[in-house]
Structures are given as structure tokens and as C-alpha cells.
Design a protein around this nucleic acid. Structure first.
Lengths: 344, 344
DNA sequence: TTGAAAGCGGTACCAA
DNA sequence: TTGGTACCGCTTTCAA
């Protein structure tokens, strides 16, 4: 049995005033005699009073809870993003409910429902790998729940979006390879329907265009980003009649799989083949050779997403969806550390 | 302005029945004519009714929310634990609010208050590095909020605790080194007041005892587990007149710092010195040389903690605090891959 | 089998 | 400056 906690009425009784007076005193309403206020505050302390947030929630139709849906919690990128979200939320007096879709569309849709039922004040999400339609967000719109998409976003719906400049990052990664003297550069991408795959592929292509290099379709392969398929397709790439001199991967995890295949085949990085990833996971610096990659400001992305969502919640009227694109940084490491001269 | 959602009264009005009938029909109370029930359910669907969970919470004095406090979200171990918690919670219809103390005692204490104010149904926590007193949990006890401690627990308070067998893991790690022929084994530990430091140190010592090896106090050093201090103390260890042949570190992150120092000094692992960590973070396998370590079942720890908490919540009466200790596994890798013979 | 009404613990309007 | 009271949306007893 739960013990009954002291409520506003208990305080009122103890002080011989009305509940409404207590409420006002506690909430800093001005029209209260300072003396009364002090008495109430004193008594609240003495009786160890704590407002029942649920009752407040009901009354104010507000929970001070933000919902967050991510594909998973264990990848460092999302963990760091959530860390940023959490810090901003805590600072502003909000809690966050975190859910993971485990990359399943079905789970994602269910979670959206759950969070709506929990009456979160706002929602932030990054789509699962499977997500390619957006009907599951219908209720979010019809109930006008503030929404911010981050990282894995889509073009199809109107909402605030926070992303890194995937195109620009991929462009820089590719150009870095070109400047190192590489010409035949492969790209191991993700599922075709993900915007993130398309953007990074576009950056890869545009870097080629800028340097007037031909694009060889056989050097571009889409994967589901899982170990088996990536390994398999990497082998195919390397078995080709005219294999690539460098590989740009959609992210560091994929690059790690590719690196394993390359090592397995007894090839040397970067001498036989260069490798670039994307994200800058902590492992990237520890790999041997360490991995050149594009670093994404994950924590900052979380902070910005949360800040935007809170603005949206607190000024629902004059709010316009914003598209925020964060810059990335090239982190050059050993996996591309071959000088141009050396290769000539 | 928030749009008003369909409530139980709207349904009642539309069907010309009373709100209480609607409530009963929706909640599967038996004393309702099946026909009425179907009508209500049908109408609920048509009017897109969703129960207001806040109102239900208030009424039932239950939120279906579990609070989780961890030192941080970005370390893989905690991320994996939370992942386990989340999956169990979701399966049982609970949400989780996740907070990070950022290793600060003050923040931790504040978060406990916040979560209590949010009326979570239960609380799971892993203490911050700074935490050495437990008054901040006083309210948790006085309000009888179900509590489960995991990983970083303490002896001082009575609650369910889920840990890995730190002593056993450390014992195995140390014995592994002894069996490899190492005799002078150093231990780089964490803060002395943490139970986890003490347990692992005890395992280290007991392995020595079992093999009748002397314990050299100068080979045991406590650190704050941060890069600078670990590096500094590692240098001291290696500068000693009789430096160690192997180092067992309290965890993999510390081991990574130690490895950097060793490499910096031009020493070879495992030929000049062997190294063992604890946790089995994903980086451990990727380091060069790969790191021998003790793997902790993080995801499982989360699952078990959540399951225990839910039991406690749902059967508050006949509940006894449980101490659950999970076994660890030794993962032997290159950092200790010297054969005994080779060293003789 | 159904309905009326009293809460859950606050907030806020209106009156005193 | 303070108090009375309706109400947020749902559950549950008790009576019809």
C-alpha cells in the first residue's frame, strides 16, 4: 500500500487557511501577504510537502516530458546526441523518455503511439533504417505535437530538422582522397531509400564532378550496413577486374567491416588501398591504422534539437519549422596517410 | 492553443450512455452488456479516442514510468544496460525516464528529487564516481519507492542490487596473468571509496594469495580513472626500480590510457609488458594489440534490473531485496598472448 | 446492466 | 488578501 503523501489540503488544514491560499503562496502569486507566504512555505518544509506533478500535469495539460525515439542507444552517435538532449532538457526543467526502435519500422510506429498516449509535450526522432513511409506520424500532426527530426530525417514531411551537412561531409571526404592522388574511389553506401545515403552519395558524386573525374557505377554499392552484406560486397568490389584504389564508406561502422575484409585479404592500408569513414566514432582513432573520417557534432546536434523543440513548445504560435544543418570536420588519420608524391 | 481531444464524456454523449458505462466498457469490466461494449469500442475507434494517461495516472496514483540514473549515457556499458532496461520496460508497458549524473554527486541528488517529483513508479540507479554518502536516497525510502541499484552499488543501503561478480572477474584476470607466467603484476584501480574498486582489488589480491605470490603495495595505485592521472601514475609505475611485468586495469578505458603510455615509451605489448582490462568495450577488440579483458553482460544486467524492479512494483508486499550477481567471462586476446615457455 | 457522484491533487476564477 | 468552488479526465463505489 502506498503511503499517502502530504497534499495542499493538509497544509491548509494545519495552517487554518484555504487550499487556494496555499496554492497561491507556493506559486509566487503576488496577492498574498508575505507573512502568510512565509508561514505556508515553512509548513510545507516541515511537513515535507512535494507537489504532485501528475495533478499539475492534468490541470495544466502539460507533462514536461519530451519523447525521444532513436534506432538504438548503444551506438555512440545516438548516445552522444541523447546526452546533449538530456542536458538541455534537464536545464529547462524537462524530463525525457527515451525509446529505441531497434531499427524496426513497426516498433517505431508503436513507440510513436505510446509516447502520444503518455502525452509528451514534444517529440524528437531519428528514423529507423526501415522507415520509408510516414503515416505513423499522422497523429503527431493531427494533435499538433511539436516535432523535431534529427540525423535520419526525410524530405517528405514538414517539421524542424537537424542534420549534419551530409553532402558537404561526403564531398570533403571524397575530395580528400582525390587530393591524395586517388582516382578510382569506391563508395560503400547504405539502403537507397534513406535520405542520408542519398546525400552522401551525392557528395561523393559532386566531388568527382568538380575534379572532372568519371563516375564508375560499378564502384558504388548499396548495402544494409550489416556486417555480412558489407563484407560480401567488399569482396566483390576487390575481386573486380579493375579494383578501387580507395573506399569511402557511408559510416565508420561500415568502414570497420570493410577494414576487416581488407586485412583478411592481406592488403595494406593505406599503401594498397585507402579508407575513409563517416561519423568519427571513438573506435576510429584506435583502429590500426587509425581511420580517416568525417566527424559529426553529435552532442551539439542533441542540444540544438532539444532547444528547437523547447522553443516550439513554449511558443507554439509564431513557430516556423527550421532546417538546421551542422558542419562536419574532416579528421585525417593513417588510413589515408599516403602522400601524393609517394603514389606517383 | 491545444486542440481538445475526445474524452470519455464525448463518447458517452455520442452513444447516449453515461461516462461510467463507457469507462467500464473500455476497461473490460465484466458487468457490461457485450452489445454495449461493442458499441462503445466501435465509437471509440470512430472518434479516435485515446485515454488520457495523465488522468489515469492521477486516479491510479501510478505513472508507468521508471526512472533511471546513470553516470553517463555515452559509455558503451551504460548504453547497453539501458538498452536492456528499455526493452524489458517496453515489453511490460512501462516507459523509462533516463537521466545522467555526469559523475556528479550533486547532480545525482538533484535528479533523485526530480524523479520523485515526477512520481516514477520505481527507480534504478548506478552511482556517480563521487557518491560516497547516501542521504540523498532518504526520500526514496521514506516514500517507499521501489529501488534497484546496478553495477555501481554500495553495501551501506538495503535494496535490490545487480552487479557482476567483480571479485571473481578480477580474480580470473589476475590468475590468467599468473598462469601466463607473470609474477610482478600491477593494478591500476579507481577511487578507493567505490565498492567496485575495492571488489576488484580484492580479487587481484586473492589471486595472488591462491598462488602464494607476495603482494607489493607499490604496484597498486588508485586513480580517478581520468586520462591525465592514469597516465601520470602509469609513468610512475614504469619508472620504478623494479617495474611490473603486467598491468591489470580496473576497466578497459583505463587500460586504453595505460596502453597509450606504454606505446609512447616504445614498449611492446605483450612482449615487454602485458595488459588486461575489464568490461569488454567494443574498442577492446579493435585496439592493436587487441585487449584481453573481462566481459560484463551489460544488456542482461539491464534486463535483470528492470525485471526485478517490475516485480517489486507489482508485488510490493511480499518483496524481499535481492542481490543478483552475474558471472563474467575472460576474453583472452593479444595483449596477454605470450606463452609461458616463451617467457622462460 | 447502467448511472450518479465522489474523488485523485492541484489551479484559477469569482466573490467576499 | 483570502476563501469557495468548479474543473482537468478518468475510475469506482453505491444505488437504481
Amino acid at each position: 500500500m502506498k503511503k499517502k503523501q502530504t497534499g495542499i489540503r493538509d497544509l491548509a488544514r494545519a495552517l487554518n487557511v484555504s487550499p487556494s491560499t496555499v496554492s497561491k503562496a507556493l506559486n509566487g502569486v503576488t496577492q498574498i501577504k508575505p507573512q502568510t507566504r512565509r508561514a505556508v512555505e515553512e509548513m510545507a518544509r516541515r511537513m515535507n510537502y512535494q507537489p504532485n506533478q501528475i495533478a499539475q500535469n492534468l490541470r495544466n495539460n502539460k507533462t514536461n516530458i519530451l519523447g525521444v525515439i532513436v534506432p538504438n542507444l548503444v551506438s555512440h552517435f545516438f548516445a552522444a546526441t541523447i546526452s546533449g538532449i538530456q542536458d538541455v532538457a534537464a536545464r529547462e526543467g524537462y524530463n525525457i523518455i527515451i525509446c529505441q526502435s531497434n531499427e524496426s519500422f513497426e516498433k517505431e510506429a508503436k513507440l510513436v503511439q505510446t509516447l502520444i498516449a503518455s502525452r509528451v509535450d514534444g517529440l524528437m526522432m531519428s528514423f529507423s533504417r526501415e522507415t520509408s513511409s510516414y503515416d505513423h506520424l499522422q497523429q503527431v500532426f493531427s494533435k499538433k505535437i511539436p516535432l523535431v527530426l534529427f540525423d535520419r530525417v526525410c524530405d517528405e514531411i514538414s517539421a524542424s530538422k537537424v542534420t549534419v551537412d551530409d553532402h558537404d561531409g561526403a564531398f570533403n571526404a571524397t575530395e580528400h582522397l582525390i587530393e591524395k592522388g586517388y582516382r578510382r574511389i569506391a563508395h560503400v553506401s547504405g539502403p537507397e531509400h534513406l535520405l542520408i545515403s542519398r546525400s552522401r552519395l551525392a557528395g561523393y558524386i559532386d566531388a568527382h564532378k568538380k575534379h572532372s573525374l568519371p563516375i564508375d557505377e560499378t564502384l558504388i554499392c548499396h548495402t544494409n550496413m550489416l556486417g555480412n552484406e558489407v563484407a560480401e560486397k567488399t569482396h566483390s568490389l576487390l575481386n573486380g577486374s579493375n579494383p578501387p584504389e580507395a573506399i569511402f564508406c557511408i559510416n565508420d561502422v561500415v568502414a570497420t567491416f570493410v577494414m576487416m575484409v581488407i586485412k583478411e585479404r592481406g592488403m595494406k592500408i593505406p599503401d594498397d588501398i585507402a579508407l575513409v569513414g563517416f561519423t568519427n566514432i571513438p573506435e576510429a582513432a584506435l583502429l590500426e591504422p587509425s581511420l580517416t573520417t568525417i566527424s559529426q557534432p553529435a552532442y551539439k546536434m542533441g542540444e540544438i534539437s532539444a532547444t528547437n523543440l523547447l522553443n516550439q513548445i513554449e511558443q507554439p504560435d509564431n513557430f516556423e519549422p527550421k532546417q538546421i544543418v551542422l558542419k562536419t570536420d574532416l579528421v585525417a588519420r593513417q588510413s589515408t596517410a599516403v602522400s601524393k608524391l609517394q603514389r606517383v
